[in-house]
């Protein structure tokens, strides 16, 4: 486990020293900063009376500030979820191919490291990165709005954690694909395909009705039953952020399922990795 953590931390250190990850952090900070300086929210007796952005009054309703913030948190949850997944798929596509690059993988495999530890560490590292990014964005937004309005809630942060778990499933697939063929493009394509298929899988019950009853519908159901329910978790994360009621047991089941999917994909990748010569 020490080695897995060491590999994960090395990946995070490597990412942290990459310019475009630094740029991402700076971008999020800049957005939050601009929002912090230009957004003014007038709260009177717990009600959001007026909102000004860049000095312009925004047409908003006068209502309890926590209720008024719900649509903002909901929208932010969707942005963090879908935007974060899309960005994560692109940004993290080359971590595994880079790990498996000729000249690097031989060096790593010659060290006292088990093969599975390398993949597990990479998976964990990327997951840590995704989580850190999501928490930074969601935490920053929560902090900003809390300072402006006095509403302190961890719900957007929880929503960001859901996005991170979902990304774990996508990245598991990307990692496995990289082991089969060392290509950042293939890795990104796998992530993108899982992302889109996962959106479809989230609406599988509704979409199944578009298929002819019988074999086509059964086939659609069978294929989508194996896919991570990306859109379901996106909606749930938005509900969570917007303080809408969420069925805890079903959410736990979905979360566990999607995390186990990620682990299954990693196990599949390790299976191939264990046999592979470099």
């Amino acid at each position: 486990m020490t080695t897995v953590l060491a590999v994960a931390l090395d990946l995070i250190r490597e990412a942290a020293s990459r310019r475009w990850f630094l740029a991402l952090g700076a971008g999020i900070t800049l957005l939050l900063g601009v929002a912090g300086f230009t957004l003014r929210m007038d709260v009177v007796d717990g009600a959001l009376a007026a909102t000004r952005l860049f000095g312009q009054v925004l047409p908003t309703d006068i209502r309890s500030v926590d209720v008024a913030l719900r649509p903002i948190f909901r929208a932010a949850a969707y942005v963090i979820f879908y935007g974060g997944l899309g960005f994560g798929v692109l940004a993290c596509a080359d971590f595994a191919p880079s790990l498996l690059a000729p000249g690097r993988i031989e060096h790593l495999l010659a060290l006292p490291v088990q093969r599975w530890e390398l993949l597990a560490g990479t998976f964990l590292g990327v997951l840590g990165l995704a989580m850190a990014g999501a928490l930074y964005g969601a935490g920053g937004l929560t902090l900003l709005l809390a300072v402006k309005t006095g509403v302190w809630t961890l719900r957007p942060v929880l929503a960001a954690l859901l996005a991170s778990v979902t990304f774990a499933a996508l990245y598991g697939g990307m990692l496995a694909a990289s082991v089969f063929a060392r290509s950042a493009a293939l890795s990104a394509a796998t992530g993108g395909a899982l992302f889109l298929a996962g959106i479809v899988a989230g609406y599988r019950e509704r979409l199944a009705t578009f298929f002819e009853p019988g074999a086509p519908r059964a086939l659609f159901r069978a294929v989508t039953s194996l896919l991570p329910r990306v859109s379901t978790l996106a909606d749930t994360s938005a509900d969570l952020a917007a303080s809408a009621p969420v069925e805890a047991l079903d959410l736990a089941s979905q979360l566990a399922g999607i995390a186990v999917f990620g682990l299954a994909a990693v196990a599949f990748g390790i299976w191939r990795f264990e046999q592979k010569d470099f």
């Binding site: 599988r204 019950e205 039953s225 194996l226 991570p228 329910r229 379901t232 978790l233 909606d235 749930t236 509900d239 969420v246 069925e247 079903d250 959410l251 089941s253 979905q254 566990a256 399922g257 999607i258 186990v260 999917f261 682990l263 299954a264």
Partner: peptide
Amino acid sequence: AAWLMARGDDKAT
């Protein structure tokens, strides 16, 4: 994973 995800289908939201 398929079993766990199917349990939450249509109900998670």
